[in-house]
């Protein structure tokens, strides 16, 4: 029981560290580097290599902390991250047949697009701070492209690293229930 509690605490601290790294280190780097969305990659990783519960828990922990730190309406990041996990989980169950590098890359790609579209939509309709609709904003597209590039690079690195260190995450076929 204590081992379980310890694991939960470590998991909680790990997600907090990822979130803090995201907005404290990455957010101050030049544009190309700051568009790495570490939290999103971790969520997809947890969903892909573990299960929906782990990814959803991470989304709630990360989303809660982001909501209390930032000045959007409370629930902004909770809802966005959770819906992204739900969407990616649906894609994984309905459309993918195996757990390989290609399916992981595809999930990261789709998750990045879905997350950014959802975030920009919520931001635009709740704040309307920009006079230009976000789809017409070139900054939105450049951020999205950089995020996709970074996410795919990280997906490649992470996938090969975990396969190198553990047999547990070797590619296998998903069984349809």
């Amino acid at each position: 029981m204590f081992k379980k509690i310890g694991q939960i605490i470590l998991f909680f601290l790990f997600i907090l560290l990822v979130v803090i790294s995201q907005f404290s280190i990455l957010a101050v780097l030049p544009q190309f580097f700051r568009d790495l969305n570490l939290l999103l990659i971790i969520l997809v990783f947890l969903l892909f290599f573990y299960d929906f519960r782990s990814a959803a828990s991470a989304a709630i922990i990360g989303g809660f902390y982001l909501d209390i730190l930032f000045f959007n309406f409370f629930g902004f990041y909770l809802i966005t991250l959770f819906l992204t996990v739900v969407f990616v989980s649906w894609i994984l169950r309905k459309w993918l047949t195996n757990r390989s590098l290609y399916s992981f890359s595809l999930l990261i790609f789709l998750a990045t697009i879905f997350y950014n579209l959802l975030l920009a939509s919520l931001s635009y309709f709740s704040f309307a701070s920009s006079k230009i609709f976000f789809l017409q904003n070139s900054y939105f597209w450049s951020t999205l492209i950089y995020q996709i590039i970074w996410s795919e690079i990280f997906a490649l690195l992470m996938f090969n690293l975990v396969n190198f260190f553990s047999r547990r995450w070797q590619p296998f076929f998903l069984e349809k229930k």
């Binding site: 957010a27 000045f71 931001s123 900054y139």
Partner: peptide, 12 residues
């Protein structure tokens, strides 16, 4: 302690 990035802005 942090920067909140928004579209088209340098960050709050």
């Amino acid at each position: 302690i942090a920067k909140q990035l928004r579209l088209g802005n340098r960050g709050d």
